[in-house]
């Protein structure tokens, strides 16, 4: 019956559903597809008065500039350095936390600790930055603690003013904000493990430690792989809000990353073509990394996101 209708009849019959969809489709065209056309700017010497149709094409000029300018090179190196620390060293922390949560006994205590540890995830990055600034302030708790432990002769310093500390601050604040909430997905994976496996292991004489190594960890491996693949693209794309938030007059120059440089070049200095080219190169590399990691993961462990 349904199959005998022509396409136009089917469409007319579903006009209410298309109306419901129209908002999302229109939005996606305007705010996602139209800006994609703007990528053309990265191959032009874009002039704001001539517009995208009047500006001259210059080929790969801006892409070449990215690879030859030391400021860009520095930003790329910083980006890779900061993000590989966050991505690779930071990766096991939520998994370990989930395992520890899983071993907690008291129901109320467990619920309380989980609630507290999830909380910072819901604060904005700028709130986290503000809390960190206040914590490391000259008259703040960090210097109070240092004075309490070492004695009055110490010099009160603000560690956020030293570019050498920057990577540690990014790593620490990332962990502080995200460790709790990132563990939720692993807790869910642990809850999904067949409880019969644990029963069998107990009968075979495995203690809790052995159960964790031989059942829980292998059980959450597929989830861990997927999370890793999904986050691997962030190797080349820093969290702008975090980096820009923590940068200050003393650290700015040493700690530029691709995202902050795109903002500075493009919006602050009006160097539109160069900034677009830089952003585009970053997007492409990011996509290729996810693709590559997914490919390796599929080859080695049959886990992939597509």
């Amino acid at each position: 019956m349904h199959n005998q209708l022509t396409l136009s009849q089917k469409i007319r019959r579903n006009k209410f559903l298309y109306l419901l969809l129209s908002g999302a489709v229109l939005w996606t065209i305007i705010f996602c597809y139209v800006p994609m056309i703007g990528i053309v700017m990265s191959f032009q010497d874009f002039n704001i008065f001539k517009g995208m149709f009047g500006s001259p094409f210059v080929g790969f000029k801006h892409f070449n500039a990215i690879f030859s300018d030391p400021v860009f090179a520095k930003a790329v190196v910083n980006t890779l350095y900061y993000n590989s620390i966050i991505l690779i060293i930071g990766f096991p922390f939520p998994i370990v936390l989930a395992l520890l949560f899983n071993e907690l006994k008291g129901r109320f205590f467990k619920r309380f600790v989980q609630t507290v540890s999830y909380l910072p995830y819901f604060l904005s990055w700028i709130s986290v930055v503000a809390l960190f600034y206040a914590f490391f302030e000259m008259s703040g708790p960090f210097n109070d603690l240092k004075e309490f432990l070492v004695g009055h002769e110490i010099e009160r310093t603000n560690i956020l003013m030293d570019p050498d500390n920057f990577v540690a601050i990014l790593f620490g604040s990332h962990l502080w904000k995200n460790i709790g909430w990132s563990s939720v997905i692993f807790l869910a994976a642990i809850a999904g493990i067949d409880s019969q496996l644990y029963e069998a292991a107990k009968i075979d004489g495995c203690g809790r430690w052995k159960q964790m190594i031989h059942i829980t960890l292998p059980g959450i491996m597929p989830t861990a792989m997927i999370i890793f693949i999904l986050s691997s693209g962030s190797l080349v794309s820093s969290n702008f809000e975090q980096v820009y938030g923590f940068q200050n007059l003393y650290t700015m120059e040493q700690t530029q990353v691709v995202n902050t440089l795109v903002y500075q070049l493009g919006i602050q200095q009006g160097n539109y073509s160069l900034a677009t080219a830089f952003g585009l190169a970053q997007g492409i590399v990011s996509f290729l990394i996810v693709y590559g990691v997914n490919w390796i993961s599929k080859k080695t462990s049959q886990v992939g996101i597509w």
Partner: peptide, 28 residues
Amino acid sequence: NLPGRNFLIFFLIIPTFISGGLIPLYFL
């Protein structure tokens, strides 16, 4: 059985992989 459903999902999912970046948004 909505005609074009798969295409529409595909159409909506593409921008989660590719974006024009900050500067084209600025001009838009």
